[in-house]
């Protein structure tokens, strides 16, 4: 058991489990966001719950942050090791002949997501933290919807979000289905599950894009 995280396979499994955990989180995040389009009152209620519930704030949130940080740090560690494993490169290397682009560029799509997370934290998480834990502003359970809608007023921000979600889809197109193989699950069931993973990896990011674009075109007065 000890040393599992030092081995190539242990690390790969950790990568897969943290990725799967983020997939579950993303589904939950998507469900809440979608209420902003279909039922703003529900959006307010759920956001208020997520933003004030101590279990969510002080247990789940730290776990999530740990999961994200673990995933991208391990991603970089693996990438560096993999580069070291071929100190002298090929003059001619036909990567596209035998492997899909998405699988060969996980670090690129990952870094794009990381950059997006920077923007996303700056947009939502940092203001929330200041609001709640620095200024101790009085809690208004109906503020979330309007605040969120106003964030999507800027076309530049909407554009950046759209691009990021495209890269998220590319990351997940390979990543989600890949997790089954990583944890040693490769049989007729996993092949069926991979199809679901491919659909999910496009549907969820496209859903996020539609929500961002919808909010952009449905601004409410300040």
């Amino acid at each position: 058991m000890s040393g599992l995280l030092k081995s190539s396979i242990g690390r790969k499994v950790a990568m897969a489990l943290s990725g799967l955990f983020l997939v579950v989180f993303l589904t939950q995040h998507f469900v809440i966001n979608s209420t902003a389009v279909i039922a703003p009152d529900t959006f307010n209620a759920w956001s208020h719950f997520m933003g004030t519930n101590p279990l969510v704030q002080f247990v789940l949130q730290p776990i999530l942050i740990f999961g994200v940080v673990f995933h991208f740090v391990m991603g970089f560690v693996l990438e560096l090791q993999n580069r070291k494993a071929r100190p002298v490169g090929y003059v001619e290397y036909k990567g596209s002949a035998n492997a899909p682009w998405t699988s060969r560029n996980m670090i690129l799509s990952g870094i794009t997501i990381l950059a997006f997370l920077g923007l996303h934290f700056y947009d939502f998480w940092i203001p929330e933290m200041i609001h709640k834990y620095v200024e101790f502003a009085p809690e208004d359970p109906t503020r979330y919807y309007a605040e969120t809608v106003h964030k999507f007023e800027s076309p530049v921000r909407v554009g950046l979000y759209v691009i990021s979600f495209v890269f998220l889809a590319l990351h997940l197109w390979h990543g989600f289905a890949s997790t089954f193989q990583s944890v040693g699950f490769n049989n007729s069931y996993s092949k069926a599950l991979s199809k679901f993973a491919k659909v999910w990896s496009v549907a969820i990011p496209v859903g996020f894009i539609l929500i961002a674009v919808y909010l952009h075109f449905n601004q409410i007065p300040h």
């Binding site: 081995s7 993999n82 070291k84 193989q181 990583s182």
Partner: peptide
């Protein structure tokens, strides 16, 4: 075998399938 594989300096698997 996995320990030896890692010690020989081979890289990790990304499941590219190449």
């Amino acid at each position: 075998m996995v320990k030896q594989m890692d010690e020989e300096g081979f890289g990790n698997c990304t499941n590219t399938g190449a």
